[in-house]
Nucleic acid binder design. Structure first.
Length: 218
DNA sequence: TCTATGATCCCCT
DNA sequence: GGGGATCATAGAT
């Protein structure tokens, strides 16, 4: 099977997605606010000149030391979670269930381990590449639905943990798209029952009716 | 449309 | 040694 070259003019393409979020966006204190604001933003990756991008439609905030659902609950600091303590604007990627890569955005200042899990995007650019990476036969709503699929389609893996989101490998951009409060719903987070009552915190944000949003049924 | 299940492996206790 | 910030599929309803 012939492999597409896909080598594009990076600077031109990059420019087309709007303004790259700068570090001040990520350094803010309220991780829940940032999670809400990430809806509608573009998540872009460029690996070996191959670009893929999607619009974020589902996020989850993890509030660090006070949040039982967070890997950094109680100030836990391990090899895996060390990256969470970096300054905002860093990628935290971990392996889940032995096979799925979860891509998170670290927020807040250094040593405050907040993070936002990107749970779903709407594919925008590089759909052919996403199909190759995921091995899916066609582009349907499952292509980038759920955090495991997002990372797979965008080519993100645990080796990218610690990557700076202000560079030209993985970054998030604002192209002016804004979802109104009527289009957005806050819900409890998924798959964190072990966190007790903290699992009920309305820290998950979804774009209402978007078919790429994970969870039950469309 | 739902529930159950297997895949698969790193991390932490 | 146990379980997890998941996903796809199979089979029942």
């Amino acid at each position: 099977m012939p492999r597409k070259s896909n080598h594009i003019n990076q600077s031109e393409e990059v420019f087309g997605y709007g303004q790259k979020l700068d570090q001040s966006f990520y350094l803010r204190k309220n991780v829940v606010t940032i999670a809400r604001e990430l809806l509608g933003k573009m998540l872009i990756t460029v690996f070996d000149g191959v670009i893929t991008a999607g619009r974020i439609v589902e996020t989850e905030a993890y509030e660090g030391v006070i949040d039982k659902a967070s890997h950094a609950y109680g100030g836990r600091r391990t090899n895996r979670t060390e990256v969470m303590y970096a300054a905002g604007g860093t990628a935290y990627v971990f392996l889940c269930y032995g096979m799925h890569q979860m891509f998170n955005v670290v927020t807040n200042v250094k040593d405050t381990p907040h993070a936002i899990l990107i749970r779903a995007v709407e594919p925008v650019t590089g759909i052919e590449t996403m199909l190759q990476r995921t091995g899916k036969p066609k582009a349907d709503f499952t292509l980038t639905r759920g955090p495991g699929n997002v990372a797979k389609a965008l080519g993100i893996s645990v080796k990218h943990t610690g990557e700076n989101l202000l560079g030209n490998v993985i970054w998030i951009a604002d192209d002016g798209t804004v979802y109104s409060d009527e289009q957005v719903v806050a819900t409890a987070r998924i798959g964190v029952d072990y966190a007790g009552e903290h699992a009920l915190w309305p820290y998950r944000f979804i774009v209402k009716g978007n078919k790429y949003v994970s969870g039950k049924k469309k």
